[in-house]
Amino acid sequence: MTELDPAYERAIDDFPDVPEWHELGVEGARELEAELFSRGSGGPAETTELTVARLDGDGSIPIRVYRPSGLEEPAPALVFAHGGGFVLGTLDSADDLARRLAANTGSVVVSVDYRLAPEHPCPAGLDDVTVVVEWTVGSADELGVDPGRVGVAGSSAGANLAALAARRAEVSVSLAVLFYPMVDPTLGSASHEEHADAPLLTRADLDWFWRLYRDDGAIPVDDPRLSPLSTVGGEARPFADSPPTVVVTAGVDPLRDDGARYADALDDAGVSVEHLHYPDAPHGFLSLADTVPGAADAWDDLATAVLASR
């Protein structure tokens, strides 16, 4: 079994000694996620708080727009969906990632505060991300972005939503940037067992997250709204309709094989895909760039891959 880089071990040791996500319950896990990740730098950017109306008239979606200083208009844009197993995450806990994504890729980043399970199971979060993708293209002039260079990005569960939104949106999406995507609701890959007790995310956590997102299991695992790997029922478009994609995976992560399988499926369909794999890194490692040199180097790799894919 691949072992963690000692620098990641030291960074994780600095985290509070807490139970696994699923042992805390929904509210406890949300409080811990906010405490752990609403910190860090990420880099300077001008931010604007906005809301986007849902198409069904059921309220509005909070978003935060990040613009790095000196970025020329019209700029490329990435609509970003945070991680958290479809259950956790806020604009604040995703702030560090959104800032780094904007700074390292030279993009306007539109971070989406999508609805969370279990209060709002699948497909509520997906619907919200899709609406914001379409709104971003339609609001390109006001945002100072190029409507032909609007992509999606996401972390973990958010990478799932981003990949699906790129297919479902009624606009052209230029690029997808996916950090350790969570795309296998069956938990049937070898890495789910091999790294069942990995740091920061366990197989038991994944089982809990998927069950809540699936409306306590009422939504079948082959529902095409659950995963970009599924094409059951004809709702999900073929892989070939996906935009050029950059996939980042970590070796010491139960989601390692999720990302690899998705990258392989895109490649088999003829989609341009760049798979960046870091064998000795844990799930969520891009959030550790302040303290782990390997994570900072991975951001440089990501910037190069995004530039080549545009």
Rank of each mutant, 00 (worst) to 15 (best):
M1W: 01
E3W: 03
L4P: 09
D5R: 14
P6D: 10
E9G: 13
E9L: 09
I12D: 04
I12K: 04
D13H: 11
E31D: 12
A34N: 08
E35L: 07
E35N: 02
L36G: 06
S38P: 02
R39K: 05
G43Q: 14
T47C: 05
T47P: 08
T51H: 08
G57I: 07
G59F: 12
I61P: 02
I61C: 06
V65L: 10
Y66T: 05
L71N: 06
L71H: 03
V79F: 08
A81I: 05
H82L: 07
T90E: 03
L91S: 12
A94Q: 05
D96K: 12
A102T: 11
N104Y: 14
E119G: 13
C122I: 03
P123L: 09
L126M: 07
T130H: 04
V131Y: 00
V133S: 01
E134P: 07
T136A: 12
S139E: 15
D141C: 02
E142A: 15
E142D: 15
G144Q: 10
R149W: 00
V150F: 02
G158C: 02
A159M: 08
N160G: 10
A166P: 04
R167W: 06
R167I: 00
R168K: 06
S172H: 03
L178R: 13
L178Q: 13
F179P: 00
Y180Q: 14
P181L: 11
M182D: 13
M182G: 04
V183H: 03
T186P: 01
A190Y: 00
A190E: 14
D197H: 15
P199G: 11
D207Q: 15
F209H: 09
R211T: 15
Y213L: 01
D215Q: 08
G217W: 11
I219Y: 06
P220F: 14
P220K: 12
V221N: 00
D222P: 11
R225A: 13
A240Q: 14
D241V: 03
T245L: 11
V246D: 06
T249M: 04
G251R: 08
P254N: 09
L255A: 13
R261Y: 04
D264E: 15
A265Q: 06
D268F: 00
A269W: 09
G270R: 14
G270I: 12
V271M: 05
V271S: 04
V273W: 03
V273Q: 10
H277G: 12
D280P: 03
A281E: 05
P282S: 02
D290L: 13
V292D: 09
G294D: 12
T304K: 04
T304M: 01
A305M: 10
V306Y: 06
S309D: 04
